[in-house]
């Protein structure tokens, strides 16, 4: 499908408009200019992480590190209390006269529980906060989007953006020196 085909049935609701770029520099500049032009509901897609791009699309700081901290805290306190409860409360076990709550002996397992819970939290929150698993997403309807995992860079302006106007936005995206601008169907 070319742009001209898509232009003909202009009345269909679309998810947004997507511009394709060749280089990271172009997509970052494009995203910055879109931000300056007042667009907010946008996203960019790249085959590898680009820090400037994350800032350019106006992504907020992620809560992930805080969640990991709490995960680790639960692991640490939980791991220690688990051992203390089992060794000193539920079944007091005297080994060579050591104190029932033998703190130094409990440290290795406490540490491992901390790491296990923190790491699990990091992975699970990354997946959940990213809204994955999500097998279907409108951006996959763009025929050339499979290059987003190879060597192309895409900038998407969503139709929910208050400033979004199909024709103006399309012209704007074209003016960014993009290779191609496509409709993103639902």
């Amino acid at each position: 499908m070319t742009n001209e085909d898509l232009l003909q049935n202009d009345d269909r609701p679309i998810y947004g408009l997507m511009a394709e770029f060749d280089t990271p520099t172009e997509v970052v500049n494009g995203a910055r200019r879109a931000h300056d032009a007042g667009y907010r509901q946008m996203d960019a897609f790249s085959p590898f992480p680009i820090h400037e791009l994350t800032e350019a699309v106006g992504a907020k700081k992620t809560r992930l590190p805080l969640l990991v901290f709490f995960g680790g805290l639960v692991g640490c306190v939980g791991g220690f209390l688990m051992q203390a409860y089992m060794m000193a409360v539920d079944y007091p076990l005297n080994v060579g006269g050591r104190p029932l709550v033998s703190i130094p002996s409990f440290i290795p397992v406490t540490f491992e529980c901390t790491v296990l819970l923190a790491a699990t939290t990091a992975v699970v929150s990354m997946i959940v906060l990213n809204g994955l698993p999500r097998p279907y997403h409108p951006v996959f309807n763009v025929p050339r989007f499979d290059l987003a995992s190879r060597n192309r860079f895409f900038l998407l302006i969503e139709s929910t953006d208050p400033k979004f106007n199909r024709d103006e936005t399309r012209l704007f995206l074209r003016s960014l020196n993009s290779r191609e601008v496509s409709d993103v169907d639902y």
Binding site: A44, F45, S46, V57, A59, L64, M126
Partner: peptide
């Protein structure tokens, strides 16, 4: 369903 979104890359 990974799509290489800039926000996703950040997290």
């Amino acid at each position: 369903g990974w799509r290489g979104s800039a926000r996703h890359w950040h997290r």
